[in-house]
């Protein structure tokens, strides 16, 4: 119950901030409301530290927020994507080692390659993300006169399907499917990764599916709960650190 109340509180606070931001953008006054200052309250605690974007620019942040809220809408199971912190997860991933191509072989020469040869882009994952957002927004502008985040739900759906199928053609040649696959994966990771990474707030996604988290000694449970739901407490890494 507590969680639900906090979620409501957070989401109304965010509505307010979001309204201010959109207003600023429509007014065309650059710098009036930087999304860098867009506050996302974590953990539902007014005294908790406030997370802000490290990597995403204001326009990119609006895209990512709209993207994760469309993919993960609020329902009886969880609050919406931004209220789960998936946008924060993505921002940190992009700013961090994954976005910078950690553990990837990044020496040339470069070649497009075959689909069976995998990632062959000279761009780092964070650069693909950045280029993909810009190209998708450009596509939305030319088709609908608005960036992705300002489209209505059905148009967002069309855009995402066109990215997923690879039908959308980006100027400059970046594959829309390549971008989408990376972006989609980041949403799934933000939904289900341990909350220490910024997403899956309150372990809501784990509660949704019935995954009990990290501490499991099931040698007895596997016998006791065969063909029955396991009522164990859902624990994240921070709960037992």
């Amino acid at each position: 119950m507590d969680d639900t109340n906090q979620d409501l509180k957070n989401s109304s606070r965010r509505q307010l901030l979001k309204g201010a931001l959109v207003g600023g953008a429509v007014m065309g006054a650059p710098g009036v409301s930087s999304a860098q200052s867009l506050l996302v309250q974590k953990n539902g605690d007014a005294s908790a530290p406030i997370a802000a974007y490290v990597f995403l620019t204001p326009i990119e942040a609006s895209f990512v927020e709209a993207f994760v809220d469309h993919m993960v809408p609020a329902d009886q199971f969880t609050p919406k994507g931004t209220d789960l912190g998936i946008n924060i997860f993505i921002d940190r991933a992009l700013a961090g080692s994954w976005g910078k191509g950690d553990r990837m072989y990044m020496q040339g020469p470069w070649s497009v390659g075959l689909p069976t040869q995998g990632y062959q882009s000279p761009l780092l994952p964070s650069q693909v993300y950045r280029a993909g957002i810009a190209a998708t927004n450009q596509h939305c502008e030319s088709l609908y006169g608005k960036t992705f985040d300002l489209l209505d739900t059905s148009k967002k759906e069309e855009v995402l399907k066109s990215l997923d199928s690879g039908k959308m053609v980006f100027e400059g040649g970046l594959s829309s499917k390549f971008f989408f696959d990376i972006a989609y994966k980041s949403v799934v990771e933000g939904l289900y990764a341990d909350p220490i990474y910024g997403g899956n707030s309150n372990k809501a996604a784990w509660k949704m599916i019935g995954f009990p988290g990290v501490i499991e000694t099931n040698a007895r449970n596997i016998v006791e709960y065969k063909n029955n739901f396991y009522p164990g407490k859902v624990l994240g890494i921070a709960d037992v650190s």
Partner: peptide, 16 residues
């Protein structure tokens, strides 16, 4: 579907 409410509902139901 790969995302949205139907996706979430299916994951919630079928994971176990």
């Amino acid at each position: 579907p790969k995302w949205g409410k139907a996706w979430k509902e299916a994951m919630a139901k079928w994971y176990s």
